[in-house]
Design a protein around this nucleic acid. Structure first.
Lengths: 215, 215
DNA sequence: TTTGACAAACCAACCAGTCAGTTATATTAA
DNA sequence: TTAATATAACTGACTGGTTGGTTTGTCAAA
């Protein structure tokens, strides 16, 4: 036992936990208000610590943000790598891509809104390292399409459009989740969706596009 | 001729033109930096007028923003209304929807980024009037899908997912245009795209989804 | 001479980041 | 075991700079 603490009360000092709370509060704040709209004071308040703690645990406001971005993209890349064993078919790799993004977006509620904003802003805050991870992820789609085409499983298609067809609807779906929850009452029940339905739909659309004939 | 002006020089006073410049500068600023990140001083400077002019011509920073949003959505709605005569087939209405958004996004370069951010933010800044216009646009997809299904032209599909499948890739494509232009050199030529290609692709994907069988 | 279009200067509020301390806990010494 | 010491974790209060918005006055045109 390394730390003796007063029985029945939470630890009053715990650097790792505090850092974690700051990180989570910052992610929520950035997702809801964007980098410029996010206030350090509000993040600290939500994490129940003094603002100075953010500067104790992180380099700066921009520093936390960069770390959140990196963590986000790394999570997708890791999940993707773990779900596509070498030798997977192009179809499976497309399916895995859809699922990896969707699952990670569901697990990290702030992920989609932050990514969407970053796209709107032209990736201003994305550092080299994070950019490399994203490029790596996107490259996998290019590779899968290319392989599918050369093995005659896929009709030729612009990989960038395939990208957008996967990433954009997923991000939009998960980013609008809070909005749709708020409108749940007024919303037609036919418009309510589960993650599974969304994954299945995007997988189906993407593969239809890649395999299908022109209508 | 209502205004006499010094020969060879631009009019020094022209309320309509000034207002227009402010409007355009504000749209660019909001698109590039978001509402919170946008600075009134920078907008005024870009419009080559004093900051006080923004408050002379508009109610407030939020006021200009609301007007830009309204103008944006109104433009899409108007174009859409003009391109779908009563009696159009569901297919044509889907095609028209794709084209209306794409054309208007191309005509107003700030449109996609602003819309994307607004989605990420849960429509915080969207007033009642604009919201009604958006709802009207989105309702047309619901109606087209419903009609297509009941006339056996379409396979049943969740209209919300069809929405996302249309709007999201289009917005993402046009919002990343500046980014892609910047990376033009490093980008594979195979990844370069024209508006026509994008429209055709999204139309094709959407109709494949609505007509196609499960792969 | 009146008025609409404009700018300089100003203000109060806000905000990222800092700093001089304070307190809880771990370590060491006796 | 305990007292003394060290230091990691933390806070309140502050600052310099920024920003949305206002006020007051100027100037061109009718």
């Amino acid at each position: 036992m390394t730390a003796r603490r007063r029985s029945g009360s939470a630890a009053r000092r715990n650097a790792a936990a505090t850092r974690e709370r700051l990180f989570a509060a910052a992610a929520a704040e950035f997702a809801a208000r964007g980098f410029a709209g996010a206030k350090v004071d509000r993040i600290a308040h939500a994490a129940r610590v003094n603002k100075a703690m953010l500067y104790y645990h992180f380099k700066s406001k921009a520093g936390v943000y960069a770390e959140i971005l990196h963590d986000m993209f790394q999570a997708v890349a890791t999940r993707l790598a773990g779900s596509t064993p070498p030798g997977s078919s192009p179809e499976d790799r497309i399916r895995a891509m859809v699922e990896a993004i969707a699952r990670e977006a569901e697990a990290r509620p702030h992920f989609p809104a932050i990514w969407l904003r970053e796209i709107a802003e032209g990736g201003t805050h994305v550092d080299k390292g994070s950019m490399a991870i994203v490029a790596g992820i996107l490259h996998q789609v290019v590779a899968a399409v290319k392989e599918g085409v050369s093995s005659k499983r896929f009709v030729p298609a612009n990989p960038l459009l395939v990208q957008f067809g996967i990433v954009a609807p997923l991000l939009m779906f998960f980013a609008t989740a809070p909005l749709r929850r708020r409108a749940a009452g007024r919303l037609d029940t036919a418009l309510q969706l589960t993650t599974e339905q969304v994954i299945a739909h995007v997988q189906r659309v993407t593969l239809l596009t890649l395999q299908g004939k022109h209508p």
